[in-house]
Design a protein around this nucleic acid. Structure first.
Lengths: 231, 231
DNA sequence: CACAAGCAAGAGCAGTGCTCTCTGTTGTGA
DNA sequence: TCACAACAGAGAGCACTGCTCTTGCTTGTG
């Protein structure tokens, strides 16, 4: 703030341009899939292809930016939807998270594929994405944490985990869900995997000719997962 | 057979050539990822790029062939592994299926990505792949079918499914697992989704910095799924 | 054993990511 | 206020891609 002119035109224009490029790139992603063409984006922008390189050092860097945005967009969607449910309606909150993920994915299939599909060849996700990637799962973690604190999560206290599994599970839950029994956290992780597994199957065509009533099937399975976890 | 010469050299050479192209393509897939270059394959084959088009009408057609092979390879691996377990060891058979899928995927990550990752843009899977794609899941279906027939699958007979879900589930199970209660079939489908969800998460980097003991985590979760289904 | 069928080569088209050089503009620090 | 450094965009070019089409040559086969 200090030392930064109120009207830093250069920086502002640059940010707008960057945003515009990403917007057009997202549009191309939605129609042409993952093989995003820098030149096509440049054409749509009414600019020569080399000009794009003023803003993104490479196609990969542009993709990274889109991936980061996608994670944040998903995180935001999940937070918003879950936040609108009454705090003590634990099942409602659980289902809100699941529905938010699926709806977001159905609305932006190519952005979903970008972050949860096969990784772009030769591309290594930078550290930046990690924080954004955890936003969504954090919400689900909070739901079971609240459930545990309210003593509203059923579980067999005798159920134990193999040592190494317990280690991983404990570390994963320690920050967001410290009061949740390890066995329950393990089940929640499994449910999380099932959620994304199902969305991926639906989006990537693995449910074709098998499951026709997608909405009902998804709702049923996610309700079943809630019970499996103990909510 | 009739009308087909014992030594149909042309056809045989053609088949060998086709196989050789696929072999090289698979090798490229393993190193360079999904952006398979026809020209690079041609170079490795010691042939000019246009020659490839004698055998595959397009890059997509070559990819389709690789996808078909991948489904069959996975199916074979699952069948072999499950077939080696004693018929009455139901849990062993269940785990054999899960382990076979994961091991196959870890050994051929790019082929796995080809069939269970984001679909290649603009590419539509032809009908041929459907049959091959069901080989693996059929094996798991047989396990729960055998379990049901032997009355060794625990389940709450009062558990019901929403109508539309029951419809889909019944149709899915009617051929391979007709004696399995619908509710159990629904859980088995969920477990199937979890299996591939977990493998995808592991392969696509979603487990990084979360789960370190991959083998143990996977084994635990799949055992949990077996119990969830009732085996 | 003549020949049709099948094959690979080569040139070429339109597209790609990316680099480098050059010019024109414009915000900005002194 | 103003000179200038920093910056944006253009354009040419390189090596690559999938794919097509034409041209000859080889070879299995009726």
């Amino acid at each position: 703030m200090y030392g930064m002119k109120a009207t830093n035109i250069r920086a502002r224009v640059r940010a707008e341009m960057t945003e515009e490029i990403k917007r057009i790139a997202r549009r191309h992603l939605a129609t042409d899939g993952a093989n995003l063409s820098l030149r096509a984006v440049a054409r749509d922008l009414g600019v020569v292809s080399s000009a794009i390189y003023r803003y993104f050092a490479s196609r990969d860097e542009l993709l990274t930016a889109l991936i980061l945005d996608a994670y944040n967009s998903l995180g935001q969607a999940v937070e918003d939807r879950e936040g609108a449910v009454a705090r003590d309606d634990l099942t409602g909150r659980w289902m809100a998270v699941c529905d938010a993920v699926r709806d977001w994915a159905l609305q932006r299939p190519h952005e979903y594929a970008l972050i949860y599909g096969s990784p772009v060849p030769g591309y290594q996700a930078p550290q930046d994405t990690v924080a954004a990637a955890t936003r969504a799962v954090t919400v689900l973690g909070t739901v079971i944490q609240d459930a545990a604190v309210a003593r509203r999560v059923r579980h067999d206290p005798l159920e134990t985990l193999p040592d190494k599994v317990a280690q991983d599970v404990r570390r994963a839950g320690s920050v967001i869900a410290p009061d949740v029994p390890d066995a329950v956290t393990a089940r929640a992780l499994s449910a999380w995997v099932t959620l994304f597994g199902l969305v991926s199957f639906e989006l990537f065509g693995q449910l074709n000719r098998v499951v026709e009533h997608r909405d009902e099937f998804f709702a049923h399975q996610m309700r079943a997962q809630a019970r499996f976890v103990g909510i």
